[in-house]
Computed example of a mutant assay.
Amino acid sequence: MANLHVTRPRPDVVLITLDRPDKLNALSYGLVEDLHRTLDDVKADNECRVVVLTGAGRGFCSGLDLTEPFPEEAKDGLEFPRSSMRWQERIAELTTKLAHLRQPVIAAVNGPAYGGGFALALASDIRIASADARFCTQFIKLGLGGCDIGVSYTLPRIVGAGQAFDLILTARTVDAPEALGLGLVSRISDGAVLDDALAIAETLCGFGRFGVESTKQVLWANLEASSLEAALQVENRSQILASTSGELREAAAAFANRKKG
């Protein structure tokens, strides 16, 4: 695809690289559509167990391509404002696709993640940053509302409501150390952030297939849990289903063999 580079560092890991480095991987119509198609393909790929998302060049994603904020291709023959709403919804749907993938998504943030790029990172399951990563909501700086592409949902759940209000209303830039302190990312890479992301992917691939998929589903589902009891109900059912896969017996047998050795 012209705007994406998709590779397999190992048979069960798909690496998606946003590939518009001259534009800091800004979200054009072509990139949005290529990413939709790729995520659809990945969701149906039974061999893929983990997805790694990163950007080409010196940035992760700088957000919407402002040279053409309302591309002609996105209008689909509709008049304003229906055409603009259709395009807005199409971009925003990328976040639900990331969250609803069966496979965990690791965002390897290798530079600026602004606006829509920040939203893509927030919708990922694990975020790790390079030392020069930067994060900014940016939307309110563009004469728009500060809440867009899911950030009003994802950001408060990651860093808490108080910090999220600050970051969204002021649209200030957060560097990698502050992002780590806020809990926005789980680690900062000492070297190549992509290498660290692939190492995490390898770890996840060493666990049971059903166990990893169900863990992601339960974590997202329980963000909406109304009580501890409701969360436990989801967990309990997931654990019993996981126990029928045969992976528990394999793990128990391997553990017994290690004790004998």
Rank of each mutant, 00 (worst) to 15 (best):
N3T: 14
V185N: 01
R82Y: 13
C147M: 12
D12G: 09
V13G: 01
L4H: 00
L15E: 02
A119H: 04
L223P: 07
V42G: 03
I128W: 00
L232E: 15
R86A: 14
S186E: 13
P156M: 09
K141G: 09
C147R: 10
G246P: 07
L223C: 13
V174L: 10
S226K: 13
F80G: 10
L39V: 05
D41Y: 10
Q103F: 02
L35R: 00
D65V: 07
G63T: 07
A123G: 08
E178T: 11
L15W: 03
D132C: 10
L64Q: 08
G59A: 15
N25D: 03
E250S: 15
D125C: 09
I168V: 12
L53T: 07
K23H: 08
N257R: 15
R102Q: 12
R10W: 10
I128A: 01
D166G: 08
Q138W: 09
M1C: 11
N236E: 15
L31K: 01
Q239W: 12
V105L: 04
A197E: 01
S227Q: 08
A129P: 00
S238C: 11
Y29G: 05
E178S: 10
G146H: 11
W220N: 15
A171T: 07
K43Q: 15
D19H: 11
C147H: 08
G57D: 04
M85E: 15
N110G: 05
T244R: 14
A221Y: 09
A171G: 08
L18W: 00
T203N: 09
R20T: 06
A56V: 04
A171K: 07
A74W: 07
E68H: 09
R237K: 14
G115L: 01
P69R: 07
M85A: 14
G206P: 10
G77Y: 12
P9R: 06
V159D: 06
G117R: 02
G143M: 11
F118N: 00
S124G: 02
E229D: 15
R82V: 13
G111L: 01
Y153A: 12
T7N: 12
N110S: 04
L66C: 07
F60S: 03
G77P: 12
A164H: 03
I149T: 02
S28E: 05
P9C: 05
L35I: 09
A230W: 08
K43G: 05
E68F: 05
G160K: 08
E33A: 11
G57T: 01
A254E: 12
V193H: 01
T173K: 09
G211E: 14
G162R: 13
S226G: 15
L142D: 03
F80P: 13
V51F: 10
S130Y: 00
I158N: 05
D175P: 10
S186K: 13
S189Q: 09
N222R: 11
A225W: 08
T244Q: 14
P104D: 02
E202C: 10
L194W: 05
A231G: 12
A251I: 13
L180P: 06
L39H: 00
F139H: 01
L184E: 08
A107K: 02
D190L: 11
S28D: 10
I158P: 03
N222G: 10
K75V: 07
